[in-house]
Each structure stands twice: as structure tokens, then as C-alpha cells.
């Protein structure tokens, strides 16, 4: 990986918030998903974020690609109903057969609307 690519990775979560503000300013419905806890091996640390707009476009990541699809679906629900959500993902979760973390880790994701 080049130095520039590494830097991109380091600063990636910083642009998530900028994107949230940008989408909001453009009048779109926006929700923010944040990893608030992890157990075992988890691909992205606590504090990792993903921002979703009403049509399902998203920027950022909360895992190595394992649960992003599910999080985007939940986030669009949050945009629709304005409710926050706190969701566990991982092998102990019943949905693990569909959306689990291949690494065997667990994480908790908080989803909130930008109001």
C-alpha cells in the first residue's frame, strides 16, 4: 500500500461526518451508524462510522464488508421513522446465518438520524 493509500484509510472516518453534513445540507434524509462496542476479533474499531442517505448511498464502513448491507437497510428505516437503533451483530445473533461476521467477532452498532 502506498503512503497515500494508508493516509486515506487513517482519515477515512473523518470524511464520513463531512458527507453527512453535505447530504443534510442538500436536503436529503441522513442516518449515521457508529460501532459503539466490539468483542473478539472485529475488523473495524469502536468509533468507525458509516453514513447513509435516503436512497441507500453510503460512505464509510463499520466492518470489513460483512454487515454493511444490513446496516444500510436499518439506517434507511431510521431515516423513515426517525428512531435510533442499537443492534448487535455477530455469531451469537440469530441473524448470524444471514449477516454475521466471518471473523467470529461481535459488534454493536448505534444508528441515529441526523435531524
Amino acid at each position: 500500500m502506498t503512503n497515500d493509500a494508508v493516509k486515506q484509510e487513517v482519515v477515512e472516518h473523518e470524511r464520513v461526518l463531512e458527507k453527512a453534513a453535505e447530504w443534510k445540507a442538500a436536503g436529503r434524509g441522513v442516518a449515521l451508524a457508529t460501532v459503539v462496542a466490539t468483542w473478539g476479533s472485529s475488523p473495524r474499531p469502536v468509533g468507525s462510522q458509516l453514513v447513509v442517505e435516503e436512497d441507500g448511498d453510503f460512505v464509510g464502513s463499520v466492518s470489513g464488508g460483512c454487515i454493511e448491507g444490513a446496516v444500510v437497510t436499518e439506517a434507511r428505516q431510521t431515516i423513515a421513522d426517525g428512531q435510533t437503533r442499537l443492534i448487535d451483530y455477530g455469531i451469537s445473533d440469530e441473524t448470524a446465518w444471514q449477516v454475521g461476521l466471518a471473523c467470529g467477532g461481535k459488534c454493536e452498532v448505534f444508528i441515529e438520524p441526523i435531524e
Partner: peptide, 13 residues
């Protein structure tokens, strides 16, 4: 999160 809070957070950063 309130949009005003997000704006303040970005300004702080």
C-alpha cells in the same frame, strides 16, 4: 444527532 451539533463538531475538528 442534531444537525447543529454535527456542524459544531465539524467546526471543532
Amino acid at each position: 444527532m442534531k444537525n447543529a451539533l454535527l456542524e459544531q463538531l465539524l467546526a471543532d475538528r
